[in-house]
Amino acid sequence: MKKALSVAALVVALTGSALAADLPSYKAPPPPPLPPPPLWTGFYVGLNAGGTWSSSNSTQVGTFPIGQPGFNPAVFPQLAILASGSVPSRNSGGFIGGGQIGYNWQFYNGMLLGGVEADIQGIARGNNTTNFTTAAVVVGVPVISNTALARSVDYIGTVRGRLGWLFTPTLLIYGTGGLAYGGVTTNTSIFQAGTNGFSGFGATSFSDTRVGWTAGGGLEWMFMPRWSAKVEYLYYDLGNVSTSGALTSGFFPLGTYGFTQQTTRFNGNIVRAGVNYHFNWGAPPIVAKY
């Protein structure tokens, strides 16, 4: 009897093992793949160089006559007309070079990029003085009038936001816009002389930092880890500058015989290339989840 029970137990054990071997096995699913590293997120610094040229290349000169008792009243308006008009000026652009610093942040599954960038550049240029000469007969006296005009942007900087789309993980297409500032200078001098010995002179000047706006866009390529190269276009507008002064003479007509006002606009275009080094200090850590 005992022998029969032992045989039955052995049969059951063997059968259970066989059935267990036939059952399907279940394994835990593999962990999800790690997300791609945020190549662009973080701080960066870089250098740039390129060219700039102005969009407005003229200065409006308006001269208002002041009559002098005892003199022919027709003299002063005609002298004022000679010193008035739209005076062409040289392009206030040239070679541009400087540096930038910024921060990028990738979002929307790494497909979009937002950020902020600040930069400053110096401008190297040649002679920027223009001479504009007119002549007329004023109450029977030939008179010549010359206006010498110099205007320039000495440096320019921007503080801009950037928003772009990553066409590939390493190629960024972006638009940008924000604040622009620059050191501008304008100098105007007027000289008038007649064949009767008359001579008159007037001058105005302005030199200061102007604040305006800028907008543009560009391409940036991460050509190796932590290094990127970019090409960029910016339009800037620093607004209008007006200066005024007096026209005076030590000979006929005596003293001040007119007031002159000059208005010019400082706006232009920048095309530049640059290279950036990315520190990734501000990039969030990548945490694997299982």
Rank of each mutant, 00 (worst) to 15 (best):
A283G: 10
F43S: 13
G178A: 01
Y108R: 04
I156E: 02
V211D: 03
G164F: 09
P38Q: 12
S145Q: 12
G110P: 04
A283Q: 09
P33M: 05
T248N: 09
A273I: 11
L238G: 08
T15Q: 13
G99T: 09
F107S: 05
L79F: 01
L254P: 13
F223Q: 03
G239A: 10
V143N: 09
R125W: 09
L82M: 08
S55L: 10
F107D: 05
F191T: 14
S54L: 03
S84L: 09
F279T: 12
G62S: 15
S92T: 12
L82H: 06
E232F: 02
V271M: 08
K27H: 13
S249F: 00
G268Q: 02
T185N: 14
S6N: 06
T41L: 07
F252A: 15
G140Q: 12
N109C: 00
P29K: 02
G274Q: 11
A118G: 15
R162Y: 02
P88D: 12
L179S: 00
N196W: 03
M224H: 00
I66N: 07
P29G: 01
S228V: 08
T59L: 13
T176F: 05
F167M: 12
W221D: 10
G70S: 11
M1Y: 04
P35W: 00
S152P: 00
T176R: 10
N267D: 15
V141T: 15
L112P: 04
F206P: 03
A288I: 00
E232Y: 04
I173M: 14
P33L: 08
G126P: 12
L219C: 01
G274Y: 10
G239L: 06
W221P: 03
L19S: 14
S25I: 11
W165S: 01
V61G: 09
P285K: 02
T264Y: 00
I81K: 12
G178I: 02
S199V: 06
A4K: 13
P37C: 00
M1D: 13
A135T: 15
R90I: 00
Y181M: 14
P35A: 07
G102M: 07
T168A: 09
I173E: 03
A229W: 05
Y277E: 11
T214A: 15
Y257T: 03
Y290F: 08
